[in-house]
Amino acid sequence: MTKGLCHLHEECRWKIVHMDIKPQKILLDDDFNAKVADFGLSKLVDRDQSQIVTTMRGTLGYLILEWLHAAILEKVDVYSFGVVILEIVCGRKVFDESQNQEDMYLLEVFKRKKEEGQLLDLIDKSSEDMQWNGALVAWCLQIDFKKEPSMSTVIKVLERVIEVSNDLDYNFSYPTLTNASVRIGQEDVEFGATISMLPSILFGPR
């Protein structure tokens, strides 16, 4: 999956931003290689453009709310990739209604455990790879897209060619949608802060 996203962002004639990276859009082949699927919300960006203004697309929980009114660039996929890897590393979904309120949203738990110095409580302590990936997750989840790695950099981290940046902000985006509004098509839609509805909210055509 990582190399697939790198190919879309950096190697195609046009940059292809998938816009909806999440577990349901990742398929496994017979050899259990992950493949990116379903490009219904994707956006083509000319390589001469660093970003493009368009209607925000994607699934809440896997996109960053601070960018809802911003121009689109391939870093939206990097953020979504980080959320997916966090789910894998922690062995739970980004939203889990079976948890108590403070533990329902995985990124908030990740942030809190970091502040408490208990980050390893979330991941497999016996697996060095899991610990390594946990650090990579934080890099991919930076609210400031300029601090996020490119997918080619992510590959180098996974291959242990380079180290994860140590200048990371753990103040991750938290999707409380009180008084938040986004434009879907020609209509402005207001949302309340109902966490249980977030995973099903989708932006863009289906």
Rank of each mutant, 00 (worst) to 15 (best):
M1E: 13
K3E: 09
K3F: 09
G4P: 00
L8A: 08
H9P: 04
H9K: 10
E10Y: 10
E11G: 11
R13Q: 10
V17H: 03
V17R: 00
V17C: 14
H18E: 04
M19K: 05
D20P: 03
K22D: 00
P23G: 13
Q24W: 02
L27H: 05
L28W: 08
L28Q: 10
D29F: 10
D30N: 15
V36N: 04
V36T: 05
D38Q: 09
S42F: 02
K43I: 12
R47L: 15
Q49N: 13
Q51F: 05
I52N: 04
T55W: 04
G58Y: 01
T59C: 11
T59D: 02
T59A: 09
L60N: 01
L63D: 00
I64Q: 13
H69Y: 03
I72M: 10
I72V: 15
V76S: 13
D77F: 05
D77H: 03
D77V: 12
V78T: 14
S80F: 02
F81N: 02
F81V: 09
G82E: 03
G82P: 04
V83E: 02
L86Q: 04
L86M: 15
C90D: 01
C90L: 12
G91S: 04
G91A: 08
F95P: 04
D96N: 14
D96K: 05
S98L: 14
Q99W: 00
Q101I: 13
Y105K: 01
Y105N: 01
L107Y: 02
V109T: 05
R112H: 10
K113V: 05
L119V: 12
L120D: 09
D121L: 14
L122H: 08
I123Y: 02
S126C: 09
S127N: 11
D129N: 10
M130C: 15
M130H: 07
M130S: 13
W132S: 08
W132P: 01
N133V: 11
A135K: 10
W139T: 10
C140E: 06
L141P: 02
Q142M: 13
Q142V: 11
D144N: 15
E148W: 02
E148Y: 01
P149N: 09
S152I: 06
T153C: 09
I155H: 03
K156W: 01
V157W: 01
V157H: 02
L158Q: 13
L158I: 14
E159R: 09
N166H: 10
D169Y: 04
D169P: 04
D169Q: 06
Y170H: 11
N171V: 11
F172V: 11
F172K: 10
T178A: 13
T178M: 11
A180I: 15
V182D: 02
I184H: 03
G185C: 07
E187H: 13
D188L: 15
F191C: 07
F191P: 02
A193Q: 00
T194M: 06
M197W: 06
P199N: 07
S200P: 00
S200E: 09
S200A: 15
I201G: 11
I201P: 07
P205M: 15
R206I: 13
